[in-house]
Design a binder for these strands. Structure first.
Length: 232
DNA sequence: AATGAATGCAACCGCAGCAGA
DNA sequence: TTCTGCTGCGGTTGCATTCAT
């Protein structure tokens, strides 16, 4: 058999529409199958990535809020570079997004530190963010309690137990509330002994899962249906 | 206005883990 | 038990946009 050449690189609008359609139809599993039936000349892997990082309607778009940024810093100090784990605590954010954010953050931090060392004699106080995170870039701390306190402290410095009030639509959480949220999800996680769902699949309630679950081992695809209007 | 540097983000790659045959 | 294919993860790259000069 001649292997059909796979497309790579940026996705077109047409491809996006097509992928969304088929994911809605069959759910966000069995990516190889989806890639085949959709007629997209993409690998299953590529389709999954596109969906998870961009097309999934559960995703939040736009900049991270200060509380999300703070949470990322804290969770990173807890989990290290386990981005999917961190993303699991930030609904609507992807591991890729967090990873990118972290890289940017680290880059900024490195630059700031460079600057600070240059003028250390002038201004001895470095940023609170870097205090909070730098110690743990590659060594996740076991004891989250102290980090938590550090961050509460950080928040108090920033704004008396409240974070981010700039946008009226934005919820205002205390750090305790955020941590309660984190801990409660962990409790459920350990109690059920189930893996945390990646955030990107949360609230994916319109997916007709039954199309997959009817038979777990085999995917039945109704070939009689005409989807050619998409590929045409 | 032009251009080079910095930044942000989407996408790819390789690997590990898991489940089914 | 071993093999194979699929999925998901983390690291990395490359391109487009923004910023500074």
């Amino acid at each position: 058999m001649v292997q059909e050449e796979m497309r790579k690189g940026p996705w077109t609008e047409q491809e996006d529409v097509q992928l969304v359609f088929y994911v809605k139809m069959f759910g966000d599993r069995r990516w190889d199958f989806l890639a085949k039936v959709s007629g997209l000349k993409r690998s299953g892997k590529s389709c999954r990535l596109r969906w998870v990082n961009y097309l999934n309607p559960a995703l939040k778009r736009g900049k991270m809020t200060p509380q999300e940024e703070l949470l990322v810093l804290q969770l990173h100090s807890k989990y290290g570079n386990r981005w999917s784990k961190i993303a699991g605590k930030l609904p609507g954010r992807t591991d890729n997004e967090i990873k990118n954010y972290w890289r940017t953050h680290m880059r900024k931090q490195a630059q700031d530190e460079k600057k600070n060392t240059n003028k250390a004699s002038i201004s001895p106080s470095s940023s609170n963010f870097s205090n909070c995170s730098s110690s743990s870039a590659n060594s996740p701390a076991e004891d989250s309690g102290t980090e938590r306190n550090d961050c509460v402290e950080l928040l108090q410095v920033a704004g008396e137990n409240k974070i981010y009030e700039g946008d009226q639509n934005m919820m205002v959480y205390s750090m305790d509330e955020i941590w309660k949220e984190v801990e409660s999800t962990e409790e459920i996680e350990t109690r059920n002994d189930l893996p945390v769902m990646a955030s990107t699949t949360w609230d994916y309630n319109y997916c007709p899962d039954s199309l997959w679950t009817s038979t777990h081992d085999h995917c039945y695809f109704d070939n009689h249906q005409d989807f050619s209007f998409f590929t045409g």
